[in-house]
Design a protein around this nucleic acid. Structure first.
Length: 938
RNA sequence: GCGGGGAUAAUCAAGUCUGGUCCACGAUGCUGGACUUAGGAUCCAGUGCAUAGCGCCGCGAGGGUUCGAAGCCCUCUCCCCGCACCA
């Protein structure tokens, strides 16, 4: 009896066998090629969602494929388990963060196991474990020793929602990346990692990576390398020098004022006790109050106040007034800019507002002379230097180099490279993170915790819900004695950004049990770098930049010799779902239910109307989100159809990098497809053939072609394309099964089909593999090879010709309403074959109609068919690509179709006769072309 | 504003790099049929127009290159994403 497809049963069974037999547990083995597949480890927020399911299914499919290809595959999983949500839960519900977190990990892990991912679970890493975060602290101390970790007071991003500061990378459009609250500027003393020190290498390293270009561009822009010149402006009456950065040093003779960031500490000093103090203070307060990102917007009016000081232009000695302005960024460059109103639009507007002179120093190439007083906007294009001392008359591009050289010569600056990226602020005023291993001693100041005292553990007596960091309310944590002098001291209460945790976890996987070092060098150097990393685009800058930085730092600490952590990166597409959208209100209509399950959405599903305006809504693709209420739970799919269907849907819906549209209909149809394949592969064939048949050749051709295409697609992670090829071969195999197949070939085809599917639907394939008599698991079976001789372009052409004949016959049958019972196939005359082959060459050679006719008519064999020849040449020259000659000669074509007429009869259920044109009598015979025989239905 | 990616049949979506059996993969939906008491089950077929097949139309709009364009080039329209006073 044919076994029934029972996913719930077989899936759990095979999951247990995989665990029991430890098939996915790997050790380093220098004799085998390694492959490291990794998905971004999740924040355990409770439940696995479809995005996770997709991410891990992509990775698991690829890992399983690489394993079958003979690689020693490292494929681990872990949890990015520190972070704010657990702490918020502690404040709201009183449950300690650790309890919430561990419960969430257990829940998400159970879901992952039920889907059957092939992780080496022994290597699980969780950042909340002391044995893990100890090494965060160790790294911090190493970086502190090297000056790569430092504490500084500066203007930072404060998120009132999280009650903590954020790194620049974590501020998206002025809002917190996590909770979307508007961030505020604050002056605070905080810990930083000196990522700028590595800016150049982080930039150049991108070139070697097999990453999406988009992500590389985003990182390049973020790092923001800019070549320019530093110019030292002495501040008159002080010993201070403003070393400003400019990319337009060619305009230096046109500087008529300087602008400082209002926050710059010098501003306050300069105005102290002067007539400018009051005005400045007012201005400063206004700037501070302004929303930081509103202030940055280009529309905001440019404002400033004079500070009562002057700077000296190092090249011409001009005395230039210094202003504080609201548009200068404090932590880019020197926090001050030289202003050239004639050649910079922003400076121009500022100068107009405050009546500052406009001095033209670059004149257009076209000879038109600009006049500073009459200009209505700045002239920012290239031109010839004017009013610029010894540089006047120079073309401005070359003047940049000349002036920079001059500045260098007189020791007032010179060529400089500047970066937009700022150091990584890692302090967080939160409990649930890695404590920063620093002690503040009343006498000794900042004292690092000795290595022997690591880890600095999180205390159990922290109180949640009070204002500020819970660690401040833990006396056992706070109060310590100084490791140096033994005196009274207190601990740093800031914890580290959780992005520190995720910056090296991929190395820990390679060496999860090491105790004296973060990871063993041997292990890392065997397994790393990650060969294929898979995750969301949202980390294009954040995690992917920090991890690269950490890799370079740890390399320089001698921990390993790897430059880049992730060789190849795949960013998976979003998951969307068609959702009600009101065109009149111009918004998506959220779905919602109240506590008792009563409908509370913004639309009426019965009448398909919008609740606001009452008009009909349309369905539009929307990103799955809690706020729209259009999420789908993987659990539901697994309960209804099984894990393999869930996986199959994820892989079949779209290629990994593309957006995937969720649809219930597609999901159940995918389950049908799987069930059909199961039936095909488990049905018994009653009668086999002994004698080979032409159809066997066709099957052999399609089988080998399928293996080739599928292999190539898997290799490029085009899993959907691979799957489509598999499905279409399954249909061919079904028709083969129906015609008493050759036993050996049929079995071979079935097994290869199972092998091709195994990475995607592993449980079903293990079961099928066993049903086919294998005692070894398919998880470790080897990937089949294909015979490229069987899929030569020539053979492909032959079968294409066959397909065309079938299609043509079906076409005519359709028109005749299936009344014909017999088919005559007439193969084009031999001269036509030769004619087409030769003339095709001439046409592609670019000869025109007249010449072609002359050539053809000079051939005695073709001359008798003058009229026909003319028609052919006309057709040929219109589009030669449409005509190909699949067979060497008429007789080859005849034999091929004659042999395959049995197949045609089977496929079409009609009697087939094949003739040569020369021996046929029907009028239509003249229509026959090589590879396209004339067809007559009767 | 700058940078990147798109627009393909009723819908989702492949093909675009490397122009030529593309009368555009695959799936959904729809239509018809088979099996049926019935089916939202299963299976088969069809799904631009024309037609005893070889033709025509068609890949956002318009133009161009070519023997030949969904693909290459130019112009335009619209959509998405990232950055955004960076001196």
């Amino acid at each position: 009896m044919q076994p029934v497809y029972e996913p719930q049963k077989i899936e759990v069974k095979w999951q247990k066998r995989w665990t029991d037999s430890k098939v996915f547990e790997v050790e380093k083995d220098p004799s085998k090629p390694k492959f490291y597949v990794l998905e971004m480890y999740p924040y355990p927020s409770g439940k696995l969602h479809l995005g996770h399911l997709r991410n891990y299914t992509i990775g698991d499919t690829f890992a399983r494929y690489k394993r079958m290809k003979g690689f020693n595959v490292l494929y681990p999983m872990g949890y990015d388990s520190f972070g704010l949500p657990a702490e918020i839960a502690a404040i709201k519900k009183g449950t300690p963060p650790e309890v919430t977190t561990r419960a969430n990990i257990a829940s998400i892990k159970a879901d992952q196991k039920r889907i059957g991912f092939s992780y080496d679970w022994r290597r699980e890493v969780s950042s909340i474990e002391e044995k893990y975060y100890k090494w965060n602290q160790w790294m911090f101390l190493k970086m502190y020793e090297r000056g790569l970790a430092y504490r500084k007071e500066s203007l930072v991003n404060w998120c009132p929602g999280c009650n903590s500061v954020l790194a620049n990378e974590q501020v998206i459009n002025g809002k917190c990346w996590r909770c979307k609250t508007d961030v505020e500027p604050k002056f605070l003393s905080q810990w930083f990692f000196k990522i700028r020190e590595y800016a150049d290498e982080l930039l150049s390293g991108l070139d070697s990576l097999n990453w999406p270009e988009k992500v590389k561009i985003m990182q390049r822009n973020w790092i923001g390398r800019s070549e320019g010149t530093t110019v030292d402006f002495q501040v008159e009456g002080t010993d201070q020098t403003l070393s400003i950065f400019t990319t337009r040093v060619d305009t230096i003779f046109g500087v008529t004022f300087m602008t400082m960031a209002a926050e710059h500490p010098w501003c306050k000093d300069w105005v102290k006790g002067t007539e400018y103090e009051e005005e400045y203070n007012e201005f400063y307060q206004e700037v501070l109050k302004q929303d930081r990102y509103e202030r940055m917007s280009e529309e905001t009016e440019k404002k400033g106040v004079f500070l009562g000081k002057y700077a000296i232009n190092p090249l011409n000695g001009d005395k230039i007034p210094i202003y504080a302005g609201n548009f200068v960024i404090y932590d880019y460059g020197a926090g001050a800019v030289m202003a050239v109103p004639a050649h910079d639009q922003r400076d121009f507007e500022f100068a107009k507002k405050y009546n500052i002179p406009i001095k033209v120093v670059i004149q257009p190439f076209d000879g038109f002379k600009l006049n500073g007083e009459k200009m209505s906007r700045a002239f920012v294009e290239d031109g010839i230097l004017d009013n610029s001392g010894e540089f006047s008359g120079m073309e401005n591009r070359s003047a940049i180099k000349a002036i920079a050289a001059k500045l260098q010569e007189i020791k007032k600056g010179g060529p400089t490279v500047n970066y937009k990226i700022r150091d990584w602020l890692i302090s967080r005023q939160r409990y649930w993170g890695t404590p920063i291993p620093i002690i503040y001693c009343e006498k000794c100041g900042i004292v690092p915790v000795p290595y022997t005292e690591l880890p600095v553990k999180l205390p159990n007596d922290a109180v949640f819900g009070k204002s500020g960091n819970p660690l401040e309310h833990s006396p056992t944590f706070m109060n310590v004695s100084c490791p140096k002098c033994g005196g009274k001291a207190r601990r740093e209460t800031d914890t580290m950004d959780t992005f520190v945790d995720s910056s090296w976890y991929f190395f820990r996987y390679t060496s999860p049990f090491s105790e004296d070092v973060p990871y063993e060098k041997d292990d890392v150097e065997y397994w790393a770098p990650v060969d294929q990393y898979i995750g969301g685009i949202e980390h294009a800058i954040l995690h992917l930049l920090y991890a690269r930085f950490f890799t370079k730092v740890s390399r320089d600490l001698g921990l390993h010799s790897i430059d880049e952590p992730f060789k190849a990166l795949l960013t998976q597409g979003m998951i969307n779902k068609a959702h009600p959208y009101c065109e009149y209100c111009d918004k998506f209509l959220p779905a919602a239910f109240d506590k008792d399950g009563k409908w509370e959405g913004d639309y009426d599903p019965e009448t398909q109307t919008c609740n606001t305006c009452g008009k009909k809504y349309i369905l539009k693709s929307a990103k799955m989100s809690k706020s729209l209420g259009n999420t789908v739970s993987p659990k539901g799919i697994i309960e209804e159809f099984g894990a393999d269907t869930a996986r199959f849907f994820m892989m079949h819906g779209a290629n990994p990098e593309k957006e995937l549209e969720w649809s219930d209909a597609n999901c159940s149809s995918d389950h049908k497809i799987l069930t059909r394949i199961w039936q095909l592969l488990t049905q018994s064939v009653n009668e086999f053939r002994e004698i080979p048949d032409v159809y066997d050749e066709f099957i052999r051709f399609r089988l080998n072609r399928m293996v080739k295409i599928v292999t190539e697609n898997y290799e490029q992670m085009l899993i959907r394309d691979a799957l489509n090829e598999i499905i279409s071969f399954a249909e061919i195999l079904r028709s083969y099964a129906a015609i008493h197949p050759l036993k050996s070939l049929y079995e071979e085809a079935k097994e290869k089909l199972i092998l091709m599917l195994a990475p995607i639907v592993p449980h079903m394939c293990e079961e099928l593999w066993q049903i086919h008599g294998h005692s070894e698991m398919i998880a470790l079976a080897s990937w089949p090879k294909y015979d490229s001789e069987l899929i030569s372009p020539e053979i492909e052409k032959h079968w294409l010709c066959y397909d065309n004949v079938v299609e043509d016959i079906k076409n005519i049958q359709k028109i005749l309403k299936n009344t014909a019972k017999e088919v005559k196939i007439i193969i084009a005359a031999d001269w036509k074959n030769e004619f087409m082959q030769k003339m095709l060459k001439e046409v592609l050679d670019g000869k025109n109609f007249g010449v072609l006719m002359k050539i053809a008519m000079s051939n005695a064999d073709w001359k008798p068919y003058g009229k026909m020849v003319k028609g052919f040449i006309q057709k040929l020259s219109r589009n030669p690509g449409k005509y190909s000659v699949p067979f060497k000669s008429q007789i080859d074509e005849y034999n091929f179709l004659k042999e395959n007429s049995i197949l045609l009869e089977r496929e079409l259920g009609m009697k087939i006769q094949v003739f040569q044109e020369e021996k046929a009598e029907d009028k239509k015979k003249s229509q026959a072309l090589p590879g396209k025989p004339a067809i007559i239905l009767q």
